[in-house]
């Protein structure tokens, strides 16, 4: 079998893991995830549409992409006999899917993302890995980083250059120190008709950004929601707590008790369940994960449709 070179990042110096939390996205793990995703999603557009093609169809197109082994269900007409004769293994030709579209990854950098320990690095990893997968599938991928407004934009691109530019943008991104908010609607202007969006956020607004997601869904062909939540934490101190909202600055004096963190986690889960229902009704794919989850596992489960739910 002819090995298709996968050196998407070949020759690129690894990023500094201290400066960029997303540097944990090493190429081997990304490639492994991309291979699995390629098997599962070969030719399938990453959206929930009514027209669901054969999951393993070799897409029609003009631009040759790669060879792969013949698998049960493949149309024998797509077998590249010459290549098969050379490799003594039946191979089919794959072409760049002309249906591959333009993706925009929308990353929330509001202060709440920085207030939950571990949430921001995981969000960066998910954004970088998701972009890698999309780029490997031939899509054009751009990046929008937003809080109250759109703070940074990486125009959509294709291939390795686009990925590296996107990684650099991620490396430069920081969550807000405080104040501001999570206004997803500010990103509507970035999206053209037919663009697909992946929103990576904690969705910690009273309506879980439901209204903005609805607007987004109306403009985009597909919307993926990846919710990253931190673990609620209550310091084990005697006496009261002065709680301050990272975004609004609102204060609240609270008397901690042993079950407080659990109740806050339940509120988080309730908010996530409402978001999930909202996404399902609107035809959006939703996955939730907590800090500490492995980014590749989160993405894999999201791609295969096993929608991860917050406990």
């Amino acid at each position: 079998m002819a090995r298709v070179p996968l050196g998407f990042l070949g020759g690129v110096a690894p990023l500094d893991p201290l400066a960029d939390p997303s540097a944990d996205l090493d190429e081997a793990r990304l490639e492994r995830l991309a291979r699995v995703a390629g098997y599962l999603l070969a030719g399938r557009p990453l959206h929930h549409g009514g027209r669901s093609p054969h999951p393993r169809s070799t897409p029609a197109g003009l631009e040759f992409l790669e060879h792969r082994e013949l698998m049960p269900g493949d149309d024998p007409r797509h077998v590249d006999w010459r290549a098969s004769a050379r490799s003594r293994t039946p191979l089919v030709r794959r072409y760049r899917d002309e249906r591959a579209g333009e993706w925009l990854i929308l990353l929330d950098r509001s202060a709440s993302m920085g207030a939950a320990p571990g949430a921001w690095p995981l969000a960066l990893q998910l954004a970088g890995a998701f972009a890698y997968l999309l780029l490997r599938l031939g899509h054009r991928v751009g990046l929008g980083i937003f809080s109250t407004d759109v703070d940074a934009v990486q125009p959509p691109g294709r291939g390795r250059a686009a990925y590296l530019a996107l990684r650099r943008a991620l490396a430069d991104a920081r969550p807000r120190e405080g104040g501001g908010g999570s206004r997803l609607a500010a990103c509507l202007g970035l999206l053209g008709r037919g663009t697909q969006a992946a929103v990576i956020s904690d969705f910690l607004t009273p309506d879980a950004m439901g209204q903005a997601l609805s607007q987004l869904r109306g403009r985009c062909e597909a919307v993926h929601c990846l919710q990253v939540l931190g673990e609620p934490w209550v310091p084990a101190v005697a006496g009261s707590l002065r709680l301050t909202d990272a975004e609004t600055g609102e204060g609240l004096d609270a008397q901690p008790d042993p079950g407080l963190a659990g109740r806050v986690a339940e509120c988080q889960a309730s908010l996530a369940a409402g978001l999930e229902r909202h996404c399902r009704r609107r035809g959006m794919r939703y996955s939730g994960c907590r800090v500490g989850s492995a980014w590749d596992r989160v993405l894999l489960e999201h791609l295969v449709g096993r929608e991860a739910r917050l406990a």
Partner: peptide, 14 residues
């Protein structure tokens, strides 16, 4: 004021 603690979303705590 008690011990200060910055939280992502205070409405959840409320």
């Amino acid at each position: 004021a008690g011990r200060p603690l910055v939280v992502p979303a205070i409405f959840l705590w409320r």
